[in-house]
Amino acid sequence: MTEPLLRLDDVRATLRLRGGEQTLLDGVSLTIGEGESLGLVGESGSGKSLTTRAITRMLDPAFRVTGEIAFDGASVLSMNPAALRRYRSRDVGMIFQDPRAHVNPVHRVGDFLTESLVRDRGVDRREAERRAVVLLDEVGVRNPEQRLRQYPHELSGGLLQRVMIASVLLAEPRLILADEPTTALDVTAQSDVMAILEEQRRARGLALLFITHDLELAAACCDRLAVMYAGQIVEQGEHVYEAPSHPYTIELLGARPSIDERVDRLPVLRYDRATHELLKAEAS
């Protein structure tokens, strides 16, 4: 078997507190192959965002991280600062829920898009701008030349998220980490942004780790799904949505209201920490 692009093996993140320790990632194992997309689904506090931070080694230093995180065979946890910088800037691209929090509001869109190409990769400014215009056009931003001269506040959330996608694609990474990229958007903008991300990703053969709370959206956009609860992946595979097998996944799917039918009462999740611990004890 060939080595996957990203491999997490029994990753644990433990926070040392005054009163003891708290394990927030509890043995996370997953793989993403070249060009593959994995949807990591969970509710708040399940550890899905912590997982992406662990992957980029951006967890708070107060965490003790154990296990193995390998990107293209290289151990992320033992990279030296130079290798880590290269890994973060070239190999992995990140898209976040709130694009506005991740751009410098006093820099023009054009500067934001071309900065790293010009500064880190020695690309000529005019060439970088040309590439940016092409990409903005591809991600469905109209009048790209004009957009380059605008400031982030002049763009809507959906438009700015497309600018973020363009900026990630410009860096030509091999893996995209998208953390709730459409949660702040309306449904139509969500559909739009996800379609663009999918198109571009497939055309370039990029791998994607898509973090979301929305099982339906993840199922529609990803090759495989992994469902997280309490810092653990409770189930993963290709048919998690169609044929869930873990009680938590089944209950989570049932609790979401449907656009097609109305039920008298929504089923409420009975799955909780106690159930989780019990199942865990039974399994081991």
Partner: peptide, 20 residues
């Protein structure tokens, strides 16, 4: 119709706004 078409559901695929 376009609002409804944009809601993720079984068998749904995201589409660009123009196509929506």
């Amino acid at each position: 119709r376009s609002l409804r078409a944009a809601v993720p559901r079984p068998g749904w695929k995201p589409v660009r706004r123009e196509r929506l």
